[in-house]
Write a protein that binds this DNA or RNA. Structure first.
Lengths: 235, 235
DNA sequence: AGAAAACATCAAGAAAACGTTAAGAATGCG
DNA sequence: CGCATTCTTAACGTTTTCTTGATGTTTTCT
């Protein structure tokens, strides 16, 4: 199915926690936990989940403040789960930045549907959150969001492996990337560390990219070490 | 002091309609009405509201179909208001593309908070996608509102599934859309992620669309990733 | 300069991904 | 119920991509 979304569950009641986690896992989500606000906040920051399920009744901190705290730096969708049915609570949570509010007891399938809805919406944003979503240098443009590469004004097609190599170098432009690092990134940790496969791919990449592959303008070879791509001009 | 948001209310019961409209106006929203689905859909297209409040129990059309119909060409936030409390209804509406679901009777302040939440989220999108209701490139024209596709000057018929695939690609023209994304959009979140069904449909689409399907001019295959449609010429 | 190491390029077979056709199943309609 | 359209599945041929081996070129080192 679609690539696994990671969901952070902040909830102190063990039973509910286990129940929700199990349900989520059967739906092919990756789940991580926190049983109090402090851990929740730090996990949200370090783990970069795709969605947060937040119980308002945490022991160490007011739920509304948890939301505010998250919203100071992040747009990750937050769905509040709460036993409090009072309207005032809902309004406060939503205005603090929550995306949805479900009251216990709730149906599993409704929760799942609301999670899908929140994820769908957030994926539409394709928000330029952390990383740069565009690389440009000389006559080369890489649009990570569109997944399209332009050379001298026209779209050029790269195979999957070529695309991975190129974008990895572009994301780390200016730095020398070792053969091992590149191979591990593209073929995984168990791949043959011999770099001949990289050389073939690099030749193909350069044929599409460079006017004269023997005198490259975009990707340079650092003999014995790896490859280095010229700096991004997009700050 | 924010600029007035326009809200389209599609609801057949006069009392509720008046009540909500009055409440919205006191909160400084601009409100427009429709008492059935047909009027609602055409007002949504012509008026370009910022948010839609939709009652599922309309006389002339199934509510879920109204959502689907809207989602064919628009990302305007939709909040469903319904008397039906059954979970199945909620899941269907949310999976069809609704952004939220409130059951009657509901508190006014909760409704207002959910509206604020939906508007806040949609404004984050910088909304480049929402407006356009027409796609044109080379000799292809897609009129989302009329639901009509023209190739080389004559109207060509596409089946429902073909239409969905085509319009989704068109609305995201220029981007590579992954097989998974397309499948989820057309067949829902539970569909088989194998792309063979997409391949068959794409062959059929291309037969109707391209002069030479083996050398496509409108929809390009990005092997291993997905499909990409040529940019919209309508800005 | 000469040898060795490292890299670039070319070509060919194997594997994977895609396009296309056709047939049965499901759906909708008179 | 029977017909027509649409949807899905299976099968097969074609194209593209991936990997490996062979060969040529550049760089490095002695």
């Amino acid at each position: 199915m679609t690539l696994k979304h990671e969901i952070l569950l902040i909830e102190d009641e063990k039973n509910i926690c286990n129940f929700i986690a199990t349900t989520l896992r059967t739906q092919d989500y990756k789940v991580c936990f926190a049983s109090d606000a402090a851990n929740g906040l730090s996990l949200a920051a370090s783990g970069c989940p795709d969605l947060i399920l937040l119980d308002l009744g945490l022991p160490d901190m007011d739920g509304i403040d948890v939301i505010r705290s998250l919203r100071e730096w992040s747009n990750i969708p937050i769905i509040v789960i709460s036993a409090r049915t009072q309207e005032k609570e809902k309004v406060e949570a939503l205005d603090a930045g929550a995306d949805d509010y479900i009251t216990k007891p709730f149906g599993t399938s409704e929760l799942m549907a609301r999670i899908r809805t929140a994820l769908r919406r957030s994926s539409m944003n394709n928000a330029p959150v952390a990383g740069q979503n565009r690389y440009a240098a000389k006559n080369l443009i890489i649009d990570y969001e569109k997944h399209v590469i332009t050379v001298d004004g026209s779209i050029v097609h790269f195979t999957q492996i070529e695309y991975k190599i190129l974008t990895f170098l572009a994301r780390n432009s200016g730095k020398v990337i070792t053969y091992d690092t590149l191979i591990t990134h593209v073929w995984g940790p168990y791949a043959d560390s011999n770099n001949r496969i990289l050389r073939v791919n690099m030749a193909n990449i350069r044929r599409k990219l460079e006017h004269n592959p023997a005198d490259p303008q975009y990707i340079f070879t650092e003999i014995g070490i790896g490859y280095r791509m010229i700096d991004n001009e997009n700050g």
